[in-house]
Amino acid sequence: MITALGPVAQELGANRVVRGVKIPHPCGDPTLEPTGDHALRVGLARAALRALATKLDAAMMFDRAAP
């Protein structure tokens, strides 16, 4: 799950949470120039793939890797 409300998501039972950017735009940042914004989104999507492939015993937050 990608959301800017990570703690709420975990509180409500989501176990694989990727820290999103902001509530109205979890998968990008309109203040960035288009290339950086796109790279940010790809990074978040990669973090989501990593979360899906990770074996968990308890809820965990995932961050995108530094570009």
């Binding site: 990608i2 109205p24 735009h25 979890p26 998968c27 990008g28 309109p30 989104r41 978040l44 999507a45």
Partner: peptide
Amino acid sequence: GYDASAANANPNYVVPLDALREL
């Protein structure tokens, strides 16, 4: 429940299809 202006300007902010297609 949220200001939709960013999402309307770029719907991939909410449905990150462009990034997932690339991957």
